[in-house]
């Protein structure tokens, strides 16, 4: 483990920017979000969970796939430098692994050479992810239900712990090891400081609400598909897309052509299974015309279908949807209800 002084943070970021496009949590009068920063001053290291999730760095809400004219198609030029993301929390770094199963890796799927999304891969494959430990989890955090935690580091390259004076770095992946090796100006961390980290970790974990044993969640969801429990769960949902749009793991998209005359562009846009139009077919028929069916879809995708395909829940317990839902449909309560049904 090595460390840098907090007072050197700004230099650290400037150096990082030489080789990377750096993204970090930014508060600028709009919802806190991960944005490409100009300098360290833009960074808000205090915010725990950004309002908008970092998935948009790799999978933006709207992304031009290509432009077309009569001559043919043109794929927009990408960023040249690889991305470095500073200040992600464990619930977010983990979400990247989950999204990568869909867009990138595609491992464990029946067919090995599944389609890999070039737009995702090009940004994700070379990126460097710094996972900042959460010293003070929120009351809506429930990463511990999904084997994550304020001091876990799954899905990151470098784990960062903040104490009063320093940022302490620990390599997680090979990419992270390589980065830290070349990082000459850092100091070694003393044993005493390492001991103190244990304390920070204990305190952070004590902030989390009680862990729910969700081992039966998958099997339970298999049994309840046509049960009345969904009436109860879904009744108050107004089918907006707030939960899906702030969620770091929701990844449904729509493709839309915007053209005029003989030229235009094809755009990929976030979509949500909560929207009525999501499954509306060209004939006018809608297999999920009712709210209940759509709520069930979102819950089942998170805690059943994704598990079926990839052996993981499509939720990291970040709690963002809990905070934004305008009718207080709390996904933690949904999970508890299902388990106890």
């Amino acid at each position: 483990m090595i460390k840098i002084k907090k007072s050197d943070f700004s230099t650290f970021i400037t150096n990082l920017q030489k080789n990377y496009s750096v993204f970090a949590p930014v508060t600028d009068g709009k919802a806190t979000a991960f944005k490409k920063i100009k300098s360290a001053e833009d960074i808000n290291n205090k915010v725990l969970n950004t309002k908008r999730s970092p998935k948009e760095i790799f999978f933006p809400q709207s992304e031009v796939l290509f432009q077309y004219t009569e001559e043919g198609i043109k794929v927009p030029k990408r960023e040249e430098k690889p991305f470095a993301i500073w200040g992600m929390r464990n619930c977010d770094t983990k979400s990247l692994l989950l999204l990568d199963k869909v867009f990138g890796e595609a491992h464990q799927m029946p067919k090995k050479d599944m389609y890999k999304d070039p737009y995702w891969k090009e940004k994700y494959d070379n990126c460097l992810v710094f996972n900042l430990a959460c010293n003070k989890p929120l009351s809506t955090c429930f990463c511990n239900w999904f084997d994550g935690g304020p001091f876990n580091n799954t899905g990151s390259d470098i784990f960062v712990i903040e104490n009063d004076e320093n940022y302490i770095f620990e390599a997680v992946s090979d990419k992270g090891k390589k980065f830290l090796k070349e990082f000459k100006t850092a100091e070694q961390v003393s044993d005493k400081e390492i001991k103190k980290i244990e304390k920070l970790k204990e305190t952070a974990e004590s902030y989390l609400a009680e862990k729910e044993d969700i081992s039966s969640l998958f099997s339970k969801t298999k049994e309840i598909w046509d049960e009345t429990i969904w009436d109860e769960i879904a009744a108050k949902c107004i089918n907006c897309g707030a939960c899906a749009f702030v969620c770091p793991t929701c990844h449904c998209f729509d493709v839309s052509d915007e053209g005029k005359g003989k030229k235009g562009k094809r755009i990929r846009l976030w979509d949500s299974c909560m929207f009525a139009i999501f499954t509306k077919e060209a004939s006018g028929h809608n297999p999920r015309s009712q709210s209940l069916q759509r709520v069930r879809q979102r819950v089942m995708h998170k805690y059943n279908y994704f598990m079926d395909n990839y052996d993981e829940h499509l939720c990291t317990g970040c709690g963002r949807c809990v905070v934004v839902c305008p009718v207080n449909l709390d996904i933690r309560e949904v999970i508890k209800k299902i388990i106890r049904y």
Partner: peptide, 16 residues
């Protein structure tokens, strides 16, 4: 312009 550029098109406003 500033206000409406915040919008994420989630339609919560419309649906409530």
């Amino acid at each position: 312009k500033e206000e409406y550029s915040k919008c994420i098109r989630c339609y919560a406003c419309r649906n409530v």
